[in-house]
Each structure stands twice: as structure tokens, then as C-alpha cells.
Nucleic acid binder design. Structure first.
Lengths: 199, 199, 199, 199
DNA sequence: CGCTAAACGAGACGGTACGTCCAGTCTTTGC
DNA sequence: GCAAAGACTGGACGTACCGTCTCGTTTAGCG
């Protein structure tokens, strides 16, 4: 039995919640993650610090919610399926890099990744609430391709998703090279046809 | 012309430098990156804080040097080349995941990545001093394979490296799944033969 | 208009305030003024440094408040007035030197003077809150003596106070000689009758 | 037997010594005592820190020497003796307040007093090398007046000096009022004739 | 006159304290 | 009766100096 009363979510102020999430996203975009502080968010949101601590266990969790609330809003329910797997994947990956090139989105996304890298719980949360659903959509599209004979039957879809998105995400995070449409096209083509020579 | 006199490197204490780098690596392994402090490193190294600030501009730069000093020591000069590309790549990637599974290495590596993600200058340093040389070794091995007809002639080696290592690094950083030998074997096979069905 | 919000005095913790003042006086008595540090006071008072910086602009101001709080507590409302001016003044000055001989008081007092000597604002504060009121009491007693014909009518009381207390304070601060009851008696007698021979 | 070789005064660099003393006086006049640092003096004098530490045990001792070297240069060998005691004393005291009103002198003098107040050894040094000789001159003049019948025969000259200079020094140090020629005239007159009414 | 030892400038070193910022908790007050 | 406001303890930040300790480089005096 806990001595500390759990906050009663029914009484939660929706105004405050929105203000906090908005302030968090705005601030991380303005000052960058390393200079982001709870105090700064509270001030910008016109909210007491306690109101933040009452509802979020960590800066990462707050950032995560903020990210979900804004980035996740216009999320598609399914990936395009024109029948041409390569073309569809290129569309999706090009959209992804376009998003990542937007400085606001980029900064928030990097901030979230920084938190995830060092916080197991947050990583789990991320997997189940953001990465998981997205991954499911991708696997659905790949499964459709598999049925259409455009993907080898013995391909592990989980790994296939990694093959397509891993290189791109990695290049973005580590800035190992420019993130262009040409690059993602190459990745898609290479992933589909393989590095080894075709007979 | 700078108004601030640069420290005179010839008078630098090698003892202090080693103690600081060692302490940094040790501490990041013990307490993790978010709880790592310059003050803590200085104390553990038996060194004044100023001695750290005199020689490193940021915690990230220090971490980077520490990482270079220790992780880079036993670095191979070339990747194995037995003639069997797939087997060689699997050896390398298995060794990589083994390293990443070592908690000490894992924590230091994550710490460095966190710094790199938010610090352009450090990222550039990382590219030129750590990632670049490693990438060159990988490309050399792939080039050899290309000459041997085990790799398609039109493959962009830069992207090929991304295809092989990106998925693994990504899974490690984001913990999207277990990092096993089986997984890297799958990645290598899939990258070489492609996702599309072979005729 | 200030950009920095002034602290809200109504929310101030009386507990912390008392602990800080007490610690300041105790520490200056123990380690002496030159080794007195804000950090030391904060630690001894079980208080965060910020709580000191929030309410006092300088070490001198804190010391001054501490001094006021403790030394000023048992302050007399008026100087003795038995009708015998010389005797009354000797009583007061003897009490003063007794206080100054108390090492605790002596150290705190010296510390305050050091701050005052180099800080105009603090000096002004000192004049209005400590020296001024005391001086008024002294002048009141002298005025009474003047009415009783024991003091020349054309004597400037301000200067008269200096004549009586200046030599004693000076000898104390500069240690130009022993501070004894005999000495203050001499000062009083000499100030009243003058150095020139009486006819 | 000491392990530490005493510095060999015969090899001492007169250039460095002068540069240090000059820099000390200049700096204390510019930045004030509380912001005066050994490092700053060394830099301004174009001298290594060690050269200061080699020859002076403390900042106070250095300041004291600097003060002696500059303030003591034009020191008179005797006080004026025109036969008119009051006039002579007024001349001396007016000259004193003029000096104290010079900001450069004022700051250096205050700095020295601060050191003296908290350092017994320095205070003793001050008494024997600066205050003592000056006091002797003053007593000599008073003794002359005593012989001329302008001073009561039973007056303790030590205390008499305090009566004349104590009030002025005190007003200067504590800024209890303006330091004017009128003020010192009043002090001299009052000290000579006494506060009590003359019959 | 050339050797040598000390003093010199420079500045890195282990430290202490500075004054600021923020984390996370606790308290008061206004709506 | 909740939440804004914000004071509280705690502790890391990056800076400034402390006093000590080498470094090479003059420089003085002796042999």
C-alpha cells in the first residue's frame, strides 16, 4: 500500500496538459535537447513544476508524450500498396527523410532517441506505442508483397523491416552521410535485389 | 587571433591524462551516462576539475577520447578475407555484437552516441577518427569481394556498408529486438541475396 | 522594471533564516573571517546555497544581518544617566571594551568592519541601522549633560561622540595598545578636560 | 635544519621587485582590494607567480611592502613646530585627510587595514614599521608643546595621540561622516580645550 | 671568461570556493 | 480543493585563484 496518493486522472486539467506538451515540443525545437529543462517547460506553459512531476515520471516520458501527441496525429493507418513494392517503399522512405530534414521534427526526434538510448523503460514504451504499430504497418505491406511473389517466401519480415529502415535511421542519427531521396532509393533497390550479383 | 592562451601541450601531465580517461570509462560503465559528471571524473581520477576543462571542451569530447584510447587500442588493421564473403562478414558482425553485449563497452558506446547525436562537431570528429577508418576497412573487404565476383559490380560500397551494419547498430541502439549471432547471420544473408525472390 | 523576479518574502522560511544567521555567527567565531565561506555556512546551516543567495546579496550583508540579529538583541534603550557624566561614560565604555574582549564578539565585529571598509552600500546600511541608533543614544546623554552644564554649550555633539569613542574603537581595530578599563577612563577624563592645561 | 633553501637575497632581481610593488599598488587602486589577486599582480608585473611567493609570505605582506615603498617615500622626518600647537596639529591633520581623500591612496590604505585587522603578525609589523615611527614624531611634537606649557603636564602622550588621530581615522574607515578640514579643526580644538565648560 | 647555481617567466597541477542553474520535493496562496 | 507559484535541499556546472611544482631561460658571481 502506497502512502502517496496516486493522482486522480479524472480531475486532470486538459488545458494544462496541452500547454505542457506544446511547450515541450516548442522548446526542444528552439533550444535543443541538452538545454531543455523541466523548469523551462513549466514556465513556458504557465504551469507549476509540480503539475509536470505529478503526471510524468521523467523528462523523457514527457518528451515521448509530446512527441506522440504531435507527430503521431497525422499518422497513416496503412502504407501505400500500389502493387509495386519498390515504388511504395521509396515513397514511404522519402517521406520519412523529408520529415527528418525538418529541423523542428529532427530535434524532437533526436531528443527522444537520446532518452530512449539510456532508459530501458522508455525504450519499451517506445517499442510498444510508436515503433511497434509502425512496424506492424510495414510488415503488413511486406506480407502483401510476399503473397504477390515480390518477396522471397522464407524472408523474416522483422529482419526485412530492419534492412529497409535501419540504414536510413542510422545515417540520420549518426550523420554518416547526406539523407537524400537518391540514397533511400538505393537502399530500397539494394535491399530488394541484394548485394551479390544476380545470375 | 585568440585572446585566450591555448594550453601548452608540451607541459601536459601524461599521468593526469591517463587517470582522467580511465576514470571516465570506468565511471560511465558504473553509473551510466546520465549520472556521469565532470566533477565525479575529476574526483575519481584524483585530479582538479580545471585539468579536465583545460584539455577538453566538453564532456562529449572527453568521452570520445576515452573511448578512442581504450576501445581503439586493439583495433584490427584489416577485416578477415578468407575468400568467403558471407562467412567473413558474419565473423565481423558477430564480434561486433559480442562487444556490444559487454555492459562496459555498451554503456560507453551509448554515452558517446548520445553526445554525437546532439553535437555536430563531435559527430564530425567521430566520423573522421573512428567511423571513417572502420568504414574504409569494410569497404576494402567489399572491394576485394567485388573483384572476386561475389558482389555486383554496380554496388555503391558506401551504401553496401550501411546495408550490412545499419540494421545491427539500429537494433542495438533502440533495443528493437535481441542482438544475437543468428540475427546478424540473417542480416548478412539477406543483404547479399536480397529480399526479392531469386529466380 | 527588473527582469529578475524578486523573491517573495512572505513565503520565506523562518527556520532556514535563523539557521543561516546562527551558522554564520558561529562559523566566523570558529574559523575566523578570512576562512568563512558561503558554502561552509550553507553546509553548517543544513541549507542549500541558493537559499543564501536568494536572500542576501553578499557575504557582508549576511554577516551584517547575523550581527544585528544576535548582537542587537539585548541592546539598551538608553545610556545610564546618574547625573555624573564622566562616571556614566566610563561605565558605557568599559562595557564596550568588555564586549570587544570576548573573542566571539570580537571576531564577528572585525569581520563586519572588514566588509564595511570596502563596501559603500553596506557602510550606509551599517550607519543607518547600527551606528546611527547607538549614536543617537550617546548624543541624548550628552545633550542631557549639556543642559546640566557639564558640557560646554558650543560643543558639536556629533564630534563629541567621535572624541569619546573614536580613540577606543581605533585602538581595538588596529591593536595599537591594550584595551583596558584604565585606558577608557583616561580617554573620558582627557576628552572632558582637554589636553591643554586648565588655568 | 630546513630542507627548503632560503632564497638568496643577494641574487634578487630589483626589477622584478619594483614591478611587483608597483603593480600591487596600481591594481589595488584600480580594482579594489576584494578583487585583487596574486595572479593578477604577477600578470600585471610581467612576473611568474613563484617570484611573488618566493619573497612574500602573504598578500597582506606584499601589500604592506608596496604601501611602505610608495607612501613612505616622501615621509617627513618631523612634524612642524611653529610654537602654535593647535595650528601645527591642524596642518598635519588636514594633510592627512587630503591624502585619504585621494582615491588611490584611500584604496591602498583600506586594503592594508583589512589585512591588519585579521592578521596579528602583520599588525605587529605595521605597528613597528609604520605606525610606531609616525607615533614617535607626533609624541615628539606634543612633548615640545608640553615643555612650552601648552599641554598639561600629567597628560599621557600615548593617549593624547589617540585623542587627536583616533576620531579622524575612525570617521575615515567607517565613513561615519564627511572628512573635511573643518572637521579636523574641530577635533583639534575640542581635544585641546576639552568638552567640559571652561570656567 | 666560462661554469654553475640560483632566480626568473611561464604555466600546469590538485584544490577550494565562487555564483548560477536545475532537479525533484514541500508549502503557501489565490481562484 | 486543486493547481499556480515558488521556496526549499541538494548538487553539478564552468570560472577564478590559491599555493606548489616543474620546466627551460637568463643572470649573477666565483673560480
Amino acid at each position: 500500500m502506497s502512502t502517496k496518493a496516486a493522482p486522480d486522472a479524472t480531475r486532470r486539467s486538459e488545458t494544462a496538459r496541452r500547454a505542457i506538451l506544446t511547450a515541450a515540443i516548442d522548446l526542444v525545437g528552439e533550444v535543443g535537447y541538452p538545454k531543455l529543462s523541466i523548469e523551462g517547460i513549466a514556465h513556458a506553459a504557465g504551469v507549476g513544476k509540480q503539475t509536470i512531476y505529478r503526471w510524468w515520471p521523467s523528462k523523457g516520458a514527457l518528451l515521448f508524450d509530446a512527441f506522440l501527441a504531435f507527430a503521431g496525429e497525422g499518422e497513416a493507418a496503412a502504407l501505400p500498396d500500389t502493387g509495386d513494392l519498390a515504388a511504395d517503399l521509396k515513397v514511404v522512405l522519402r517521406a520519412t527523410v523529408d520529415e527528418l530534414e525538418n529541423p523542428r521534427y529532427d530535434r524532437a526526434m533526436r531528443a527522444m532517441h537520446v532518452e530512449i538510448v539510456n532508459d530501458h523503460l522508455l525504450a519499451a514504451e517506445y517499442l510498444s506505442r510508436l515503433d511497434g504499430p509502425m512496424r506492424e504497418l510495414k510488415k503488413t505491406r511486406l506480407r502483401s508483397a510476399q503473397r504477390a511473389g515480390q518477396l522471397a517466401e522464407d524472408v523474416d519480415l522483422e529482419v526485412a523491416v530492419d534492412m529497409l529502415f535501419g540504414p536510413v535511421l542510422n545515417r540520420w542519427l549518426h550523420r554518416t552521410g547526406p539523407l537524400t531521396h537518391e540514397y533511400v532509393d538505393q537502399v530500397v533497390d539494394m535491399a530488394l535485389s541484394g548485394l551479390a550479383p544476380r545470375p
